[in-house]
Design a binder for these strands. Structure first.
Lengths: 231, 231
DNA sequence: CGACCTGCTGAATATAATTTATTAAAGAGC
DNA sequence: GCTCTTTAATAAATTATATTCAGCAGGTCG
């Protein structure tokens, strides 16, 4: 009688798609709540209402699950961005919107952003992953707008675009880091304004030409001359 | 005779300082070579000529060892920076040097940089660590120079300094990422020039007040005036 | 209705970090 | 020079998870 063994286990066999999305949902939740390392496969399985081994029928391992979770989220974000940007006109406004959108994303989903930065990017095989491809697409939002600005004649024609792009994304990320690790707040609107202005300013004039004292000394010279003239 | 048991184990008892530095040296090497996760305590112990358990007599665990290794390296870098910077004059030159120095550091010690970015920063207790304090000191190199530029009247008086600082460090980090993960090259000189110019340009004029064509138009006006004067 | 396929389970395995009981080097006291 | 004490260092045990795998049992098709 006390033999527990006889308890006929109740097993539900779902179509692969259903199981997959159940696991992804559980994974996204647990990874968001606890981060990658602290999330255990046991807990994810539990949340998905299955047993650990089942996850491995569908995903190669913990890391692949993370990648799929993040890729799915990236796709949602990319689709939404295109819709939103369509309604914004003018180089400065579009630049500002692009930065604002990124900051807002960090603000709303800090945990997922942290996972990308800490767990995916920087792996030796990162460039072969789906997330990398999506991240490139996402990053092209910046270079697209810079190109528009050049085409419109508002920006100088030969800026180091990759570098500007990386200063935007790297800058937001660093700036938001305290917030990303759960401390302090993040002022999305103000930061978007400031950064948009810095970037716009840096691109609008000859930011690449000043040379050691180049533009600087030119301005000083000219200012001195102007003063003399206006006496 | 073949009894291996009788082999009296040869144990050397070193002063704590010596053991500590042996372990730090081995840790720095192995962490640099393989990264944090792939580095095993067994291999570190081996390289240091001791057995795993001994590491725990001196360090709380793998993570604390990493922190001490990185902190030591940071201190070396901070000391060297001060010496080097002392010989550089002028805001643009100092700004360029500061960026160059950071890029050169990434270039020379990519593995240690990657460890900071991936393993230390972003931990929940990061702000309580020694490395955090050192990183703040390091980061102040940027704000120091911005303040000098303001004092010299070259920069506008109220820039968002934290944000600029984070765009410099976050930007270099993103930009160097491919190199940091062992792929591609990193042009230190060119990148330092470009970034210094972008930042100098963004701060020199009213980068916070969009003024599309701010400094540029000022220069044009002044140049026109000068020409008139020199006629 | 029965045989088969394969999703699912549950327990076993593997790998590393960490802990701990034991051993022995080095210095103090006689 | 000898023993005694202290504690550094060792080697084995423990722990914690991710991952694997042999077998069980829904669901389906003949």
């Amino acid at each position: 009688m006390p033999k527990t063994r006889t308890r006929t286990r109740q097993v539900s066999r779902l179509p692969r798609e259903q199981r997959l999305s159940d696991i992804m949902k559980a994974g996204r939740e647990i990874f968001s709540e606890k981060g990658f390392e602290a999330a255990s496969m046991a807990e994810i399985a539990d949340r998905a209402g299955i047993v650990e081994g089942t996850i491995y029928r569908i995903f190669k391992g913990k890391r692949e699950l993370l990648e799929k979770v993040v890729a799915q989220w990236y796709e949602e974000v990319l689709a939404d961005y295109d819709v939103q940007l369509a309604g914004v006109r003018g180089t400065w406004n579009r630049l500002r919107f692009m930065i604002w959108y990124h900051l807002q994303g960090i603000h709303d989903q800090p945990d997922l952003f942290a996972l990308v930065a800490q767990q995916l990017r920087g792996r030796p095989d990162y460039e072969e992953t789906e997330v990398y491809a999506l991240a490139r697409q996402y990053a092209s939002h910046a270079t697209d707008i810079i190109k528009e600005g050049i085409a419109a004649g508002e920006f100088r024609p030969d800026p180091p675009m990759q570098l500007v792009r990386d200063m935007i994304f790297g800058g937001t990320e660093h700036y938001a880091w305290r917030f990303l690790s759960g401390k302090g707040d993040l002022s999305v609107e103000e930061t978007a304004d400031q950064m948009a202005n810095l970037v716009y300013g840096g691109l609008a004039q000859g930011g690449d030409a000043p040379a050691p004292g180049g533009l600087e000394s030119v301005v000083q010279r000219l200012e001195a001359v102007a003063q003399k003239l206006e006496q």
